[in-house]
């Protein structure tokens, strides 16, 4: 089952990052020495299945992500909000695509708004039982997707 979920996550991440931000996604290789994530966003889903999905990135990549999504430089007093907004929107798209890929196109899900969270909370979730963690090579940095399924 975890392989099915990881495959759905990988395909969703590829679709989102390549289409919306022109960024290449590759499989993660252990001991690659790439910069690790230090900022994260999370959102909940409820419906046919209930749970939470988080996306963690290396914060310096957020400039490229936001600039590629917006098509303009990210600067000025609104820059940090735009970077965080880009991360949240990327997660929102990954989540929607992942749920369809995982559960098919019949179930309806209610999604909570994405929010920025402390990266340590993701690490705690990732170490707990029942969580599925997928690491990716995103533009030569580590990106991490964590799915937690809640029991109804």
């Amino acid at each position: 089952m975890s392989d099915v979920i990881k495959e759905a996550l990988y395909e969703s991440a590829m679709t989102v990052f390549e289409t919306s931000a022109f960024m290449d996604v590759f499989e993660w290789e252990e001991d690659s020495g790439l910069p690790m994530p230090d900022i994260a966003a999370t959102m909940k889903f409820a419906g046919h299945a209930e749970g939470e999905i988080s996306l963690s990135l290396f914060s310096e990549l957020l400039d490229t992500l936001a600039e590629n999504m917006l098509g303009e430089p990210v600067e000025g007093p609104n820059a940090e909000k735009q970077r965080q907004d880009a991360l949240k929107e990327a997660l929102n798209m990954v989540c929607g695509n992942f749920l369809t890929s995982w559960m098919g196109d019949a179930p309806v899900f209610n999604l909570s708004p994405p929010e920025i969270i402390d990266i340590r909370r993701v690490a705690e979730n990732a170490e707990a039982a029942g969580r599925i963690v997928l690491r990716l090579n995103l533009e030569d940095t580590c990106a991490e997707l964590v799915v937690t399924k809640h029991t109804k």
Binding site: G96, L99, A106
Partner: peptide, 12 residues
């Protein structure tokens, strides 16, 4: 414009 891909939701 949404991330959702549910056919049920689209019919709604």
């Amino acid at each position: 414009v949404s991330t959702e891909g549910s056919q049920t939701r689209m019919e709604e």
